[in-house]
Structures are given as structure tokens and as C-alpha cells.
């Protein structure tokens, strides 16, 4: 009966092909996968499982990846990592994180199979295997668990290939909306305490442009008061241009619609 590793590996294999249009494996490593499901009683069995596990990582489709990349890589693992990085340009650190398991398996294999002890302690720490290694069943259980997690993380990682990023227009409109809210907040005191300010801004919004002297007439207040109240808004919503030696032209180049509906902007959303 097929175990978890077999099911997960098969799922990963089909997902990978589906997402990238390229085979994950040079040849599907059926034998190794079957071997990984076996129990471990002693050192020899542990060694055999470990060889199968690292054999699995050598069976990645190096040729296919190198061809797609246009450059050669040292080993099947690095080739796959480079391929994933070009396919998922925003997930480089995650790719490195996921594939740490693979490099740790290589380190452990070098130590157990070839007695190379360079950095082997790092692998022991990573898999939480106590030293000296005596409980092989336990050590294998940890390795197997890490491998199952690796398969799950790998599947989750490549699913990002289909992730839909936020659209440029949405990003734009929400940035502009945020900036507008900050600006309104900055003016909140004036807008709340001076109903005339709100009224005049709306009037300018409706008209697009108006002489300050005409606005003064429209609201029934002296032009000096109109200017004084609107002065803070000259750094945000309104522009003031010379008209005559006694009057200026007030314009509102942008955000007229929002100013027309000022209440909505001021009240319903904080």
C-alpha cells in the first residue's frame, strides 16, 4: 500500500509538471520512494534509507532545468533551485529555506556513508539527532518527518506560481485614497470647526475655478475672511493664481469629486 511519502511525492510530481510544464524528475524515483517507506531497525537500514533519500535529490531533471536556464549548475539540487528562482523571482529566501532540508540530508549522508565530518554537526542539530547516534529508528523518524514537511513546503512554494499579485490600478487607487485621507485628517480641525471652510471648498469643487472676490459674494463674507479660512488648503486641495491687483483665481485641479462628497470621506470611514 502506498504510504504518505509516496502520495506526497506523486502529488508534487504532477503539480510541478502542471505549473511549470517541465518534469521534476529525470526519471520518477519509484524505487527510492518505496524504500523510504520501509522501517529502520539498525545502522544498515538507516544507511540504506539515507542513500535512497539523497538519491532522490540526485534524480531531479537537471538536464531539463539547465536547458531552460541557459546555464549549467553543479548538481541536480542547485539546478532545481536555480530553476525555481527564475520561476518564482519573489520567493528566493523561501526557496533557500525549503531546500535547506535537502542540503542537510547531503551533509548527513556524507558523514554516515563516507565518514566525512565536515559540518556534520549542523545536520545533527537540524534534524535534532542526539550524538552519539545510537537510536537509528528515532533518527530515521526525524528525517522522514523533515522530508514529509519538505514535500508539503515544496508544494506550497510552487503554488505561488499561480498567485495573482495585486493589480497596479488597485495599488494606485488605494495609495491615493490613503494619501487623501491623511490630508483630510490634517485639515480635520479646520473642516470640523469651520463649516464655512467645508462649504467654500465644495463650492470651488463644483465650479472648478472661481475668483476669490466672487466666492466672497456667494458666501456673503468679506474676501479677507474667505482667504484666511482657505489659506491652509493652499498646500493641498486648492491653487491660487493672480487675477487682478485685488483678486485671485482659486482652482481645484484634482480631487473635486471627493471634495463634493466631503461628508462621506469625513464620516463613514476613519
Amino acid at each position: 500500500m502506498a504510504g504518505t511519502i509516496h502520495t506526497r511525492t506523486a502529488f508534487l510530481t504532477s503539480e510541478f509538471l502542471h505549473l511549470f510544464g517541465l518534469e521534476l524528475w529525470n526519471k520518477y524515483p519509484a524505487e527510492q520512494v518505496t524504500d523510504l517507506e520501509e522501517d529502520v531497525a539498525g545502522r544498515d537500514a538507516f544507511k540504506s534509507r539515507l542513500i535512497s533519500l539523497s538519491g532522490l535529490f540526485e534524480a531531479f531533471n537537471k538536464k531539463g532545468f539547465d536547458r531552460s536556464l541557459g546555464f549549467k549548475n553543479e548538481g541536480a539540487r542547485l539546478s532545481l533551485v536555480a530553476f525555481l528562482k527564475t520561476q518564482l523571482p519573489n520567493h528566493h529566501p523561501q526557496i533557500d529555506d525549503v531546500f535547506r532540508t535537502v542540503s542537510m540530508v547531503s551533509l548527513l549522508r556524507a558523514y554516515i556513508v563516507h565518514s566525512k565530518n565536515q559540518n556534520y554537526k549542523e545536520a545533527f542539530q537540524f534534524f535534532k539527532i542526539p550524538e552519539p547516534l545510537t537510536d537509528y529508528a528515532m533518527a530515521w523518524a526525524s528525517l522522514k518527518l523533515h522530508f514529509e514537511l519538505f514535500l508539503a513546503d515544496f508544494v506550497a512554494l510552487i503554488a505561488n506560481k499561480n498567485a495573482v499579485p495585486i493589480k497596479q490600478v488597485e495599488l494606485e487607487s488605494s495609495s491615493i485614497e490613503t494619501a487623501l485621507r491623511y490630508t483630510l485628517q490634517k485639515h480635520a480641525y479646520d473642516l470640523r470647526e469651520t463649516p464655512l471652510a467645508k462649504m467654500m471648498l465644495k463650492e470651488i469643487a463644483v465650479r472648478g475655478e472661481i475668483l476669490d472676490t466672487d466666492l466672497a459674494k456667494a458666501v456673503g463674507h468679506p474676501v479677507e475672511l474667505v482667504r484666511q479660512i482657505l489659506l491652509p488648503f493652499t498646500s493641498s486641495f486648492i491653487r491660487v493664481k493672480y487675477a487682478t491687483n485685488s483678486s485671485t483665481l482659486i482652482t481645484m485641479p484634482e480631487f473635486r469629486d471627493q471634495i463634493k462628497n466631503l461628508e462621506d470621506w469625513l464620516e463613514d470611514k476613519k
Partner: peptide
């Protein structure tokens, strides 16, 4: 990571200029 791979800031920049200029 939800950001697009390419972002054109022109419209946002223009809107910000409109909201924050010299008094």
C-alpha cells in the same frame, strides 16, 4: 509578495504632488 513585479508610480506621484505642495 502580493505586489506586482513591476510598479509604475507616475499617477500616485502626481496625486501626491497635488495633495502636498508648497503653501
Amino acid at each position: 509578495q502580493h505586489l506586482p513585479d513591476e510598479i509604475n508610480v507616475e499617477d500616485t506621484r502626481m496625486a501626491l504632488i497635488d495633495l502636498r505642495h508648497r503653501p
